[in-house]
Write a protein that binds this DNA or RNA. Structure first.
Length: 494
DNA sequence: AAAAAAC
């Protein structure tokens, strides 16, 4: 079992011996890389950097936590270096590389990486995304940048406001492209792509190569080289995955218990709903765990504050929706907890990809209630193996300070806490009861489910194989397919 | 079912 790092590299023997200075990257870039503490390229970096440097288009499939951002940022910076200049004139700094991401946080993170890797070069970069004041972004664009990182909506907004011209873009990166399609960004992507010069290099990164992604690629990429470092839909071997059977009403208590028992200093807890995330954050806080929620209904400044505080270690539990599922890189995150199992099995892979990054080990701990069996089966089908299932007895919750959880809040505790506690008086009684003192009659049906020897529900798997994609192409699929059909049409660009 | 993203 000497797995993790050793296994990952030995499967990539051809590239195992590489160091960063074998790519022919400039000294300014290598300096920034080594200052960041990186000495050895990851498999995707080893494969992608030479290809991107050669000018070829790329279809990239990489697991999260594989160093994907550097794999395109470093060669892009290298290719732009000859065009860098030190002029103060904005006209001398046209946008030459555009990087698109599905979420604002991811854009911000990619931008931070690009900034780091280019800091010893004259290249300038900035990031634009929604939810924040446009003016500082416009001002940065007016001063001129060679590299722009953006979410699609705000980018188009800037184009419309004439604060941005994309006519000089030579390199385009579509990061998490499958996610962007999921989120309905295809029309925006098409608009953006039609604003770009046809003569350009395009890099498309996607967790999966679905038919939609392949169609997008065949329309907008030219003889792309495919780079795949790990089978997509697989999960890192250095992440231990455990599923805990719990009653739905015990979930909050279970999260608190897991955090305490495992002494987790930092954990992301994923919920399926924004309301659920806010609620759980409040409950955890009441349990003496420093927690905050991050989701799309919070203001952008709250989102950024939450993420920054979490990265600084000031917050123990970041309770998130899938806004945080993809791409976010938090150093040394020891665990993620799924409060809910995601509806999309693919999102499970992304969520747990937040831990065990860069060869570190991590735990992915999922709570599964009786009504989430289908999601569990879907996940096991996707990752092609059964998950280890344990039963979690949720003990009578105690606060961190040793007080009983249902004790009245200490004097001086924030008003919202008391309010939250009162709001949830009913559910609190349920969550604080252990499975031992639950009335037996009520829990009978659930227990029957849990007591059954665990199987990854072969019937469900078989059903799906026999009848592939039964009633799937409803509302959301239709316009996507139609639009994708349109992609094949000869483009008329001005 | 739910989430994300422009104003």
């Amino acid at each position: 079992m000497s797995d993790s790092v050793a296994t990952n590299t030995s499967t990539e023997e051809a590239t195992a011996a590489l160091t960063f200075d074998q790519f022919g990257l400039s000294a300014d870039i290598l300096k920034a890389v080594s200052e960041s503490g990186y000495t050895k390229p990851t498999p995707i970096q080893a494969k992608a950097i030479p290809v991107v440097l050669s000018g070829s288009d790329v279809m990239g499939a990489a697991q999260t936590g594989t160093g994907k951002t550097a794999s395109f940022s470093l060669p892009i910076i290298q290719r732009l270096l000859p065009m860098a200049n030190t002029s103060a004139s904005p006209a001398r700094h046209p946008v030459r590389a555009l990087m698109l991401t599905p979420t604002r946080e991811l854009a911000d993170q990619v931008a931070a990486n690009v900034q780091t890797y280019s800091k010893h070069t004259p290249l300038r970069s900035t990031v634009v995304f929604g939810g924040v004041d446009m003016n500082p972004q416009s001002e940065a664009l007016r001063r001129g940048v060679e590299i722009l990182i953006a979410t699609p909506g705000r980018l188009l907004d800037h184009v419309q406001q004439k604060t941005l011209n994309l006519g000089q873009v030579q390199m385009l990166v579509l990061d998490e492209a499958d996610r962007m399609l999921d989120m309905g960004f295809l029309p925006d992507l098409q608009r953006i792509l039609n604003l770009l010069p046809k003569e350009r290099q395009t890099l498309l990164f996607s967790a999966t190569f679905s038919p939609e992604i392949k169609k997008l690629a065949s329309t907008y990429l030219r003889n792309p080289q495919t780079i795949e470092v790990a089978r997509s839909n697989s999960t890192a071997t250095n992440v231990r995955q455990i599923v805990y059977e719990v009653h739905e009403s015990d979930k909050s208590g279970a999260v608190a218990q897991i955090i305490r028992e495992r002494e987790l200093k930092q954990v992301i807890v994923f919920c399926n709903s924004k309301i659920g995330a806010s609620r759980l954050a409040r409950v955890l806080e009441r349990d003496g765990i420093v927690a905050t929620a991050i989701h799309g209904d919070r203001s952008q400044s709250e989102r950024m504050q939450a993420l920054d505080a979490f990265k600084r270690g000031e917050i123990e539990a970041l309770v998130a929706t899938d806004v945080a599922a993809r791409g976010l890189d938090i150093a040394e995150l020891p665990a993620v907890i799924n409060f809910d199992l995601p509806f999309n099995a693919e999102d499970y892979v992304h969520r747990i990809g937040r831990t065990g990054r860069a060869g570190a080990s991590g735990d992915a701990l999922s709570l599964c209630s009786a009504n989430e069996r289908k999601q569990l089966a879907d996940i096991e089908k996707l990752i092609k193996r059964p998950l280890e299932v344990q039963t979690l007895q949720v003990a009578t919750p105690m606060r961190r300070d040793g007080a009983r959880r249902d004790e009245r809040p200490a004097r001086g505790e924030r008003a919202e806490h008391r309010h939250g506690a009162r709001d949830e008086a009913g559910s609190r009684r349920r969550t604080s009861s252990s499975s031992y003192d639950r009335p037996r009659g009520r829990q009978q049906p659930i227990d029957e489910f849990f007591l059954k020897p665990y199987e990854p529900s072969p019937s469900a798997m078989k059903r799906q194989e026999e009848a592939p994609e039964p009633e799937r192409k409803s509302a959301s699929k239709q316009p996507l397919a139609a639009l994708l059909g349109g992609l094949g049409m000869p483009r008329k660009t001005s």
